[in-house]
Structures are given as C-alpha cells and as structure tokens.
Computed example of a mutant assay.
Amino acid sequence: MSGRSATDALRLLIIGPPGAGKGTQAALLAEAYGIPTISTGDIFRSNVKDETELGLVAKSYMDSGDVVPDSLTNSLVRSRLAEDDVKGGFLLDGYPRTPQQVDELDDILAGHDAQLDAVIELVADPELVVARLLKRAGEQGRADDTEEVIRYRLTVYSQQTEPLIAVYADRGLIVTVDAIGTVDDVTERIEVALAGRGIAPLEKA
C-alpha cells in the first residue's frame, strides 16, 4: 500500500492501560502519520503555563488535588482542536475518558464536518503490566507505585474505558493491538492493523 499524502486528514484516538507504552507509541505514530499528538496532560500544562483563562481555572483544581471537571476538560480540548495544526488530523491521547466526553468529541468533530478514522486499543495481560510497572518504579525510585496502587489504577482504567470501547466498537472503529513486545514490534502491529483499514503512514520522501 502506498503512503498517505500530507494533505490527507487523519483523525485517530489511542487508548491503553497504564504501562502499555501508550505515550511512546503515540509519539512514534504521530511522526509516521504526520499528525500532532494531542494529550489532555499537554493541553493542561500548556494552558497553565500560558496563564490562559481556562488554564488558571484548571490550575485551581490541580493545585487542590481535585480532578478537572468534564466541562472544563471539554472546553480545553475544543479550543485545542480549533487550532490550525490539527486541520490535517490528530492523534488523541487521554481523551475522551467518559461517555459524556465521547458525546462532546462527537459534537466538536461534527462542527468541523469530521469524524474519527480509527480507535487504537492497546491491550496487555494485566500481570505483565503489573510486573513492568513495578520494575519501572524500582528503576525510577517511585516508592508510591506499589503493587496495590498499580492494580487499583488498572481497575479504574478498565472501569472507565469499557463503556468507551463498547461505543467505538459499535461504530466499527476499534483496532485492537497487543502492547506486549518491543517498541518497534508494537508500532509495526499498529501500522499493519491500520493498513488493514486502508490507513497508511505518510509517503517517505
């Protein structure tokens, strides 16, 4: 299959549990497909740094340890998706997280006469993920990342994402990829899975 032209818009979403290497894959895929990665974490940090009105409100929640409410997160994402660099597409990482955010994303995309092309779901055996995160915690000195905490995070992730996966599966958008293996192996699996849906990386110059 020939590669995509840089003018072909491509809108992807990547979902995966903690420890699945989602951030690493998102960066590699953004480069391969010529689209920016958009993560809620980056959006929050950028708005806080620039002291935007929304950023200052978000900071007040973050400083007090509270979760940033859906309404504010939605506003920040809506603002980000209106910027010029996403006209050719994007790779969303960390949003949506709730069914309400799925509805909001639908509305945002409809406003741009656009829709998602695929949802990449990284899957991994929970025991392997726990072992990977415990190893990383030891290497990086993260004393708070205990097995109990890691298993709790995985449970919360599963509970949060099951409804989202169901919605996107009903729409035929889910591309499931095994996240266990080398970084290159997982990237190749994702590219093969997307190619099966007619989505190819950018043409190499």
Rank of each mutant, 00 (worst) to 15 (best):
L92S: 12
V186L: 03
Q115T: 12
Q101K: 05
G65W: 01
A9H: 09
D66H: 13
T73V: 14
I199S: 04
Q159K: 07
P126I: 08
L154Q: 08
G94Y: 06
A26N: 02
L92P: 11
D144S: 14
G111F: 07
T146I: 03
H112C: 03
R197N: 11
V119W: 07
Q160N: 07
S64V: 07
V86R: 02
V77I: 09
A6C: 06
N74R: 02
G111W: 00
A20Y: 14
L173P: 15
G181I: 01
R171H: 15
E121L: 15
P36H: 00
S39Y: 01
H112L: 04
G172L: 01
Q160R: 04
R45M: 06
A30T: 14
F44G: 04
L105H: 04
G198F: 14
L122N: 13
S75P: 07
L91W: 08
V67L: 15
A114W: 00
L122C: 13
V129C: 10
L116W: 07
I38L: 12
D84Y: 06
E104C: 12
V68D: 14
E104K: 03
L29P: 14
G111T: 13
V192Y: 11
A169K: 12
P69Y: 13
V102P: 01
D125M: 14
R11C: 12
G138D: 02
R189P: 13
L76T: 01
L109I: 02
R142G: 05
A118R: 08
R142N: 02
D107Y: 01
G94K: 11
L28F: 14
A26F: 03
A195Y: 01
L194T: 08
D178C: 11
E53T: 10
T52F: 09
A131V: 08
P201Q: 09
T7M: 10
Q115Y: 04
V177H: 11
Q25S: 05
E188H: 08
T7D: 15
L128S: 10
A205N: 15
Y168M: 05
K87R: 06
G3V: 10
V186W: 00
Q100K: 02
Q101R: 05
T40H: 08
Q160V: 00
R136S: 06
L122V: 15
T187L: 10
M62D: 04
A26H: 02
V123G: 01
L128T: 10
I174D: 10
T73Y: 01
D63V: 02
R153W: 03
A9Y: 13
Y157V: 02
A118Y: 07
A114P: 01
V183C: 04
R153P: 06
Q159G: 02
D144W: 12
A143M: 13
L13Q: 15
L54H: 03
P163I: 05
L164Y: 05
R189T: 12
I108V: 09
L116Y: 00
I38C: 12
P163E: 06
E51Q: 11
L154G: 10
V130Y: 05
P36S: 00
G23S: 02
E191D: 14
I180K: 01
S158L: 09
D70S: 07
K135T: 05
A124W: 15
V167W: 01
A9W: 13
